[in-house]
């Protein structure tokens, strides 16, 4: 199924490449609560100009062993496992750059991180590169692609201004976890080095700290930019795991998922299986439902994620961790899976 999806994507990509010189792998936008123009109208300058926060376009790599000199075990990293390769992108580097234009195997990808919403997402980029526009909507990074100059809020993963307005980017799964957890799962991982082409104090996070939590990242601290929708069910910066499809958005309470191990959800048009990955501290989502829901103890986690015979025919859905205020600001109709609602 995954292979067929991938082939369809490749064909779509080929068709798209003929239509657009910038050859971004695109599809219909997944879910937007408002028309694209509305997001642009609500966007504002975060301060720096376009590319004032420079993306890393020529990434350099360390071995995991060398990475240990730079990273503490509980340092946050953004992990990607693609085409048989594992890569770790330290949060303490991405906080200064927000986008890495990388190539993993045959896939050109952009690994993106927005410190203000605590979101890490990856996208296929074709022959294109993404840059930081300097604008924000709902505090979220608005990227732009250097081929068509379309503007893309990271969480929406959809164009809101420019030639590809209303179209969606193709996501890849990235994992928001800690260095020791990622290294335990991927001992051969490579690590993005601090040879970024720019000089920064990578031993300082201008927003605060994740270890221990301080500054901007404290859950009940306030977001600093205006948002389109507010909700106080959780502290503003409480971390939830969110996924969205064309039919709706779902926020998973990670404490609830951790207790249950496995959750199911039916939105009326499709069923979803949500698995807790205790080793990485994240979740994996599949569309479809096996005849028998697997017990969490029977699921093995390999380099590419959960492995179980019952998952074979299910379609992976890419979700990501996000601060609650940001998720709700983009998806005010979100379902919350917390065992109570």
């Amino acid at each position: 199924m995954q292979l067929i999806s991938r082939m369809a994507l490749t064909l779509a990509f080929a068709g798209s490449a003929m239509a657009h010189a910038d050859s971004l792998p695109l599809h219909d936008a997944q879910l937007m609560a408002h028309p694209p123009d509305k997001y642009w109208d609500e966007s504002l300058s975060g301060g720096p100009p376009k590319d004032g926060i420079p993306s890393i376009d020529d990434p350099d790599w360390w071995t995991a062993e060398r990475g240990n000199d730079f990273l503490s075990p509980d340092d946050r990293i953004i992990g990607v496992f693609l085409n048989g390769e594992a890569r770790a992108y330290p949060q303490r580097i991405l906080v200064w750059h927000e986008i890495v234009n990388d190539t993993i195997g045959d896939d050109a990808v952009s690994v993106t991180y927005c410190p203000l919403t605590g979101t890490a997402l990856g996208f296929l980029r074709g022959a294109n590169e993404f840059g930081v526009s300097g604008r924000l909507v709902n505090s979220n990074l608005i990227m732009y692609d250097r081929g068509s100059d379309t503007y893309w809020p990271q969480i929406l993963a959809a164009g809101i201004r420019g030639p590809h307005s209303g179209e969606g980017l193709t996501q890849i799964r990235v994992v928001w976890t800690t260095w020791d957890r990622w290294q335990a799962r991927h001992p051969e991982t490579r690590v993005l080095s601090d040879n970024t082409g720019y000089v920064r104090n990578y031993r300082r996070d201008p927003y605060g700290s994740y270890t221990p939590l301080s500054g901007y990242y404290v859950p009940d601290s306030f977001p600093i930019f205006p948002v389109m929708h507010r909700d106080e069910r959780y502290p503003a910066k409480e971390e939830i795991f969110g996924f969205r499809t064309s039919s709706g958005a779902v926020a998973v309470d990670m404490d609830h998922l951790s207790e249950q191990g496995v959750l199911t959800h039916d939105d009326g048009s499709a069923s979803y299986l949500i698995l807790h990955d205790a080793e990485l501290g994240t979740a994996w989502v599949f569309r479809g439902m096996p005849d028998t829901v697997p017990d969490s103890d029977s699921i093995h986690f390999g380099p590419a994620g959960p492995e179980h015979p019952a998952l074979g025919d299910l379609e992976p859905i890419h979700g990501f961790e996000a601060m609650w205020f940001a998720w709700y600001a983009f998806y005010p109709d979100t379902v919350v899976l917390d065992g109570e609602s």
Binding site: G47, L141, I224, F225
Partner: peptide, 25 residues
């Protein structure tokens, strides 16, 4: 002065000036 993607004034929690962040420089 600005930090990474927001001016310092915003990061230290001065309210009500987010809308004019672009003018601070």
């Amino acid at each position: 002065g600005g930090a990474c993607c927001a001016p310092t004034l915003l990061l230290i929690g001065v309210p009500g000036i987010a809308a004019v962040a672009g003018l601070l420089p």
